[in-house]
Design a protein around this nucleic acid. Structure first.
Length: 576
RNA sequence: CGGGGUGUAGCGCAGUCUGGUAGCGCAUCGGCUUUGGGAGCCGAGGGCCGGAGGUUCGAAUCCUCUCACCCCGACCA
């Protein structure tokens, strides 16, 4: 491909709206252009990258025995009513009507469609296990699209759905997908981590997320360098403290002190001269029509997902301050465990406090030297907080947990019979009995991988593509395209490389060399060959690896061979 | 959804407070020079100042409405 005749609109200046490096660089390198909030056009170079990711995903899915299909992006509401999600799904679901007033949605996911396919086409246990996948455009009307392609509303996703007769078979299908995912992300040249994840409202035994590690990631993942445990923050467990903490020198009788006008934990802690970690904060949540008072150490954060599990309710929401007062008779700042109206559920970490400081359930007052079971009912000890860096690993109980940020690029989980049951999928088993298959579902954010790869691979000058994702392996730069000799050498080299199966972008523009260098750095193609000028006079071509400063002069006749060898070498190392 | 911000040339921005016929840099086009890391000089083209309504002799500028995009928040009492 020639630079001069391809739409590669590079930008010298930083676009104002971009907040993360991948977004900035994708705009500056001319990979994408925004059409609306969270909606982007892929320009030629960006599309090349997207296709590379797609190809890797497709190869590995095929190799794992999954069958590619393509389902409609527009889906009739009836299917969603059958599964119950027409009501359950919130405003993220883009709904609209056809000319006859019939309801449709633009698919944010395809469980309903694939399940409908399964009930029509799968008859016998001999048709199982089956795994269908597609690579398709999805639309989710995100509350707040941001970071360019990273969290767009429209995006390209690979989604796969497996059907098995029993749990053991599903286990196997699931494992095959996890293996395939590891190969996919490895081949993409990404530093990633597979983590245990919450299964959400769908339930099911377990679930894994695949995260590309990056500072700008929106998710937090906890991991243990000692034993390899890794989980996202929603899921990561905290342990019951093994020893009690001496929070009071002498445990005396409980006292009440006035803390007029103090609203935050910090204000009260400062006033009382005690650490925030010795204080107990109370939060009121509601779920399934019931209200609960949750207790946490002052320096800990509530985890709503874990709280929902602990309380045995579907979802929980934090009550508004007015609602809290209505339920408890106290303003939020003075809520506490002593003499309250609501059932108490406390994070396990509080079991380690010999005594506590908390709101007094009287406006403007706090209690000191409270003791569980003496001054208030002993709460139920549950795991409802976010883990923090340094917490002991819940699995090996030895090493400390570390927290990293990640970009979720893959998610696999077992669906069970949620959809097959709701939509009445059955097959006959060997005994001729009707059985309901169970499902697994496996997603990869194809377009998000492009952004994640850039997030992980760039410098001040621009992108540094992993070889496997680079739109071209080589940029062939002509110092002066008007020189006939240079052009001849470059064209011969381009032809030779192409015949060797290597993608080449030739910068044949009649621009100043500096412009071409800057653009080359920005585009970040792995290898660069510079034809012309002083090196050509001595019969050589300069080659350079993006990200490394050295340039090498190689005899013209050998350039293609050297480049091919380097590329093959890197590709081989990338796969191992 | 709540709060804040911004819409002016392809891109980045000034001009808005204090109304007076729209500007800068980059990019684009032409000419000359230059040519190994975003060149210099000369010249040129390009604007429904997001949209609608209003106030005024006169509106990018003031008022009302509206649309779009961006940011922050939507758990810490």
């Amino acid at each position: 491909m020639r630079f001069g005749t391809t739409l590669i609109p590079t930008l010298k200046e930083n676009p104002g709206e971009a907040r993360v490096e991948s977004h900035r660089l994708m705009l500056r390198a001319g990979l994408i252009r925004q059409l609306g909030a969270g909606i982007y056009t892929w320009l030629p170079l960006g599309l090349k990258v997207l296709r590379k990711v797609e190809a890797i995903v497709r190869e590995e899915m095929d190799a794992a025995g999954a069958q590619e299909i393509l389902m409609p992006s527009v889906q009739p509401a009836e299917l969603w009513e059958e599964s119950g999600r027409w009501q359950m799904y919130g405003p993220e679901l883009l709904r609209f009507q056809d000319r006859g007033g019939r309801n449709f949605c633009y698919g944010p996911t395809h469980e309903e469609v694939v399940t409908d396919l399964a009930r029509r086409e799968l008859r016998s246990y001999r048709d199982l296990p089956a795994n269908f996948y597609q690579i398709q455009t999805k639309f989710r009307d995100e509350v707040r699209p941001r970071f360019g392609i990273m969290r767009g509303r429209e995006f390209l996703m690979k989604d796969a759905y497996s059907f098995d007769l029993d749990e053991a078979s599903l286990e196997n299908s699931y494992r095959i997908m996890v293996d395939a995912y590891n190969r996919i992300f490895g081949r993409c040249g990404l530093k990633y981590r597979a983590v245990e994840a919450d299964t959400g409202s769908i339930g099911g035994a377990f679930s894994h997320e695949f995260h590309v590690l990056a500072e700008s990631g929106e998710d937090v993942i906890a991991s243990c360098d000692g034993c390899g445990y890794a989980a996202n923050l929603e899921k990561a467990e905290s342990l019951m403290p093994s020893e009690t903490e001496e929070t009071c020198a002498h445990v005396g009788p409980m006292r009440t002190v006035a803390t007029p006008g103090m609203k935050t934990m910090e204000e009260v802690a400062t006033f009382l001269g005690c650490p925030v970690s010795a204080m107990v904060k109370s939060l009121v949540v509601e779920g399934d029509g019931r209200a609960f008072q949750l207790l946490l150490r002052g320096d800990h954060e509530l985890n709503l997902v874990k709280a929902a599990h602990a309380l045995g309710v579907g979802t929980v929401v934090l009550a508004e301050p007015e609602r809290v007062t209505a339920l408890t008779g106290v303003a939020v700042g003075s809520l506490g465990p002593v003499g309250g109206r609501l059932p108490l559920w406390a994070d396990r970490s509080l079991a380690g406090l010999t005594c506590f400081i908390a709101g007094a359930n009287r406006d403007g007052n706090h209690v000191l030297d409270g003791v569980w079971g003496r001054d208030c009912p002993t709460p139920r000890w549950v795991d409802i907080r976010n883990v923090v860096a340094g917490d002991p690993c819940p699995r090996c109980r030895v090493s400390p947990l570390r927290l990293d940020r990640g970009i979720e690029v893959g998610h696999v989980f077992k669906l069970g019979d949620k959809y097959t049951r709701a939509m009445k999928v059955t097959v006959q088993d060997a005994d001729g009995k009707e059985r309901t298959p169970i499902m697994g579902c496996y997603g990869i954010g194809v377009s998000r991988i492009v952004a994640a790869a850039i997030e992980q691979n760039h410098d001040e000058q621009g992108i540094i593509w992993p070889l496997a994702l680079a739109p071209f392996a080589v940029e062939l730069m002509l110092v002066n395209p008007r020189e006939e000799d240079s052009m001849k050498v470059a064209e011969a080299l381009e032809k030779e490389l192409r015949q060797g199966g290597i993608d080449v972008l030739m910068d044949d523009r009649d621009e100043r060399l500096g412009v071409k260098f800057k653009d080359a750095d920005l585009l970040g193609l792995p290898f660069r060959a510079i034809v012309g000028g002083r090196s050509l006079k001595e019969g050589t071509v300069e080659i350079q690896r993006r990200g490394q400063p050295e340039k090498e002069r190689i005899a013209i006749a050998e350039v293609a061979g050297v480049l091919r060898a380097r590329i093959q070498d890197e590709a081989a190392r990338g796969r191992s």
